[in-house]
Design a protein around this nucleic acid. Structure first.
Length: 783
RNA sequence: GCCCAGGUGGCGGAAUGGUAUACGCGCAGGACUCAAAAUCCUGUGGCCGCAAGGUCUUGUGGGUUCGAGUCCCACCCUGGGCACCA
């Protein structure tokens, strides 16, 4: 018996090096016969390094991919860095570094860490979003949207983060706060670039029914899209040519509408002949100053102002009713005006109470009929708004647009309604982000690039006159909205001339499995679907849903709370990898709870996995027992369980099954066959150890390219089963019985049991329920 | 307020409507050791009992069923998401 120690550190380093040199995880991108694209959300290297939560996510995805590879698929598991954008820039600001230099440092660090976790990454196809070779195509994506009328510029009230000093998309404002830094977002009226995601709203919603995604993520997208069906009803204004269109989902309450409310920003406010103009304008101004957060902080007490001198007419009962403006009505939803029904709507009731308005007790009517009677029109509204792309920051993809004063004055331009604006010609891409010493956000609604004349000076692509480049950069979520399309084409010869190679794309898409965090439900996962639909419609992609199967992993918490630096409970994987090894950490993370559930990281129980892998090591140090094998049935049961558990992302129970098998191998001994099969089952979870023991068994090729074991259904069960005998549903005995016995045989066996006999003697048997190969239940008459 | 997910031993968790508590952690006792660590063995939900055994137990209360952690109804609690969207 050898007593060689399990030197995980040497073993893991050895195999990581060998796999890389042997290109073990590099599929043949052009010739693969059974492509399987196993994609995981790439990390943003914003902080000190990889988070144990990243490792949790990557390991879970990798296990699935490793099994697929062993099932004969050509698995492609790429990795990269989402290193452009506010998160990386904020980190650079915090540590006083320049983001362009810091990116290189973070890159080295992240790639080192990502190498150490033992995933089957296809390193040759890695990409970084801040690489001009990559963002050249991000700009190209922008240009395509522009050319097809899906990118436009518009002045409107937008979210502004006073700390990040930039505008934000609606999706990046969480409960009134900036998604990145947590500052309260303000509203500002600014001219910005938008993507017309709302054009795709119907498909974004309808396709959710067709894709296999974690249900909670689908629900989040549905809520965010916020479809509601209702009616558009016209309220004319007494003695006036004007009228107000309102949107309501409850036309059946029309008789109870006792006043009308406009959003403070509603255009009619300026037009109507209002008597108390000064008072109204004061309210409009006050409302404009308020941030979302302010409004929430006020406890939603209703404020507003009556528009004196005008009255609206309820089209149902022809009554004259007052008109108000109030900030509880949003300018950006519906028509920016509502009919108020204080009897049926809580918000209207609150407002009516604050302003002492009468509440009507008019009964409900048939909504369909009343809409017809008053000449209303059925309409569907969505809460989803267009995607705000501009950011007044430095560290991002420059928006590839040029504005020409001369053309604007002459009304010339590339797109209707956008005089003076031209896309940078595609052959001139990328518009490279220049190194700028003072990259800090300025807070004046302009990017730092607006202070760099050598950057913004350009010639107009239309007329050749001196013109000015757009100086804002694009939202980071644009970088990640198409990255998955680039991976397989990064090394393609044609990848120099086109963003994604059509032949390779046809072969590898759509992505077979996408794994990532649920926190991106309405951010990344919505944008990426939108961009895919656009390129599908433009004929560049053969699919419109990029990820037919998506699984959200659970959240890994620590000490009962979400890991965060301020709480000081962030777990760094490095120390665990150096102390226990990547295989132990991988298995520990996967063992603590179901993958889709997440769990609490406690190092106390990591010892169980340490013991397990050391036991496995020990088993393989001892010789095998030869041909006759007592473990065949346990083995086949384990193969079945591990196979189906991996498919269902239930890695915790798969590991438990492996433990049971290993325990039996240690006590009963195991043959070569059992050992080989065991190592294969272990390989996705502990790839280094499995590979090492595989080699020591005399194999010269990688276990990760071996065939996944198959089970024999006939061997999954024992010949006997424990027959549970119940009397009135209470267990009285357990008898070893032959599988497949008939009811009368089981009954005979059961009656022969002394305790059962005693229980049956107490009454008369009414019925006997027999569940094959499981239990028999005597139901007594007395009950 | 609305929408999800969940509530099971001291802890993480396991259970196609069919032996609740698999697997692991922890704990207790034992073996090995001069000793410790490591390892191995045994035990480990509560209550009653010397024991055999009995009995109760999956957030609470009802229901369906021969049989409910699992299905139905009501409620309580925790975590997450959305939130003045008409």
């Amino acid at each position: 018996m050898s007593s060689e120690r399990y030197d995980f550190s040497a073993i893991e380093k050895k195999w990581q090096k060998r796999w890389f040199a042997d290109r073990t995880y590099e599929p043949d991108l052009t010739g693969a016969e059974k492509p399987f694209y196993n994609l995981m959300m790439f990390p943003y290297p914003s902080a000190e390094g990889l988070h144990v939560g990243n490792m949790y996510a990557f390991t879970g995805a990798d296990i699935y991919g490793r099994k697929k590879r062993m099932e004969g698929y050509d698995v492609f598991e790429p990795i990269g860095l989402d290193g452009f954008g506010i998160h990386s820039e904020n980190y650079a600001l915090k540590i006083g570094a320049h983001p362009m230099k810091q990116a290189k440092i973070s890159e080295t660090r992240f790639y080192e860490q990502l190498s150490a976790i033992g995933n089957g990454f296809a390193w040759e196809e890695k990409l970084e979003t801040y690489d001009p070779k990559y963002y050249r195509w991000t700009q190209w994506v922008f240009v395509q949207l522009w050319k097809h009328g899906l990118a436009y510029r518009k002045k409107q009230a937008v979210n502004w983060c006073p700390s990040c000093k930039t505008v934000l998309a609606d999706e990046q404002v969480i409960a009134g706060k900036c998604e990145r830094c947590g500052s309260e977002a303000e509203m500002k009226n600014l001219e910005q670039w938008f993507f017309r995601i709302t054009k795709y709203v119907d498909r974004l919603l309808a396709n959710l029914e067709k894709i296999d995604w974690s249900e909670r993520v689908k629900i989040a997208q549905r809520n965010w899209i916020g479809k509601s069906e209702g009616a558009l009803i016209k309220f004319s204004i007494f003695n006036s040519p004007f009228s107000i269109d309102v949107f309501t989902t409850r036309p059946d309450t029309l008789y109870g509408a006792t006043y009308v409310v406009l959003a403070p920003e509603h255009p009619l406010v300026a037009t109507l002949p209002i008597k108390n103009r000064a008072e109204v304008e004061q309210y409009v101004k006050a409302a404009a100053r308020k941030s979302e957060a302010d409004r929430i902080a006020e406890g939603r007490e209703k404020t507003g102002a009556e528009l004196k001198g005008v009255k609206a007419i309820n089209p149902a009962n022809k009554e004259e009713i007052p008109i108000f403006i109030a900030d509880y009505v949003l300018a950006t939803y519906g028509t920016g005006a509502i009919m108020a029904v204080p009897a049926h709507d809580e918000r209207d009731r609150d407002f009516a109470r604050a302003f002492d308005l009468p509440v009507s007790d008019a009964p409900l009517v048939d909504g369909r009929k009343v809409v017809k009677e008053v000449g209303g029109k059925w309409e569907t509204n969505f809460r989803l708004r267009d995607w705000l792309i501009s950011r007044q920051r430095y560290w991002g993809v420059p928006i590839p647009m040029i504005f020409c004063e001369a053309c604007a004055a002459a009304g010339k331009g590339e797109q209707k309604g956008m005089p003076g604006w031209y896309a940078v010609p595609e052959e001139e891409l990328p518009v490279e982000l220049p190194y700028v010493e003072d990259f800090r956000p300025k807070g004046k609604g302009e990017s730092p690039l607006a202070s760099a004349p050598e950057f913004y000076r350009a010639k107009c692509p239309g007329c050749g006159a001196d013109a000015r480049r757009e100086t804002d950069v694009s939202d980071t979520f644009l970088d990640s909205a198409w990255y998955y399309l680039r991976y397989p084409s990064t090394r393609s010869v044609r990848g120099e001339q086109i963003p994604w190679d059509p032949a390779i794309t046809k072969k590898w898409f759509p992505v077979n499995l996408y794994t990532g965090g649920a926190e991106h439900s309405v951010l990344h996962l919505l944008y990426v679907r939108f961009i895919a639909m656009v390129f599908h419609d433009l004929g560049f992609l053969h699919f419109e849903e990029p990820f037919p199967k998506f699984r959200a992993h659970g959240l890994l918490i620590s000490e009962g709370a979400k890991m965060s630096k301020s709480k000081g409970n962030v777990v760094n994987p490095d120390e665990y990898i150096s102390k226990y090894g990547a295989d132990v950490l991988r298995m520990y993370l996967m063992f603590l709870a179901p993958f889709e559930q997440g769990g609490d990281f406690r190092d106390a129980s990591i010892q169980g996995i340490v013991r397990f892998l050391e036991r496995v090591w020990r088993i393989f140090q001892n010789g095998s027992v030869g041909e006759r094998d007592p473990l065949m049935r346990t083995l086949h049961r384990t193969i079945k369980k591990v196979t189906s558990d991996i498919e269902a992302f239930q890695y915790n129970t798969a590991i438990s099954a492996l433990m049971i098998l290993a325990n039996e191998m240690e006590t009963a001994g195991s043959s070569e066959d059992v050992r080989e099969a065991f190592l294969k089952l272990l390989a996705p979870f502990a790839p280094h150890l499995a590979e090492e023991l595989w080699e020591r068994m005399g194999h010269t090729t990688s276990i990760h390219r071996e065939k996944w074991p198959l089970y024999d259904e006939a061997l999954v069960h024992e010949d006997t089963f424990p027959l549970v005998v119940q009397v009135n549903g209470r267990r009285r005995a357990t008898i070893e019985a032959t599988r497949g016995i008939m009811k009368h045989e089981a009954e005979e066996l059961a009656r022969a049991d002394e305790k059962v006999g005693r229980a049956l003697a107490e009454g008369e048997v009414k019925t006997v329920v027999y569940v094959k190969d499981r239990l028999i239940n005597f139901v007594m008459k007395s009950i």
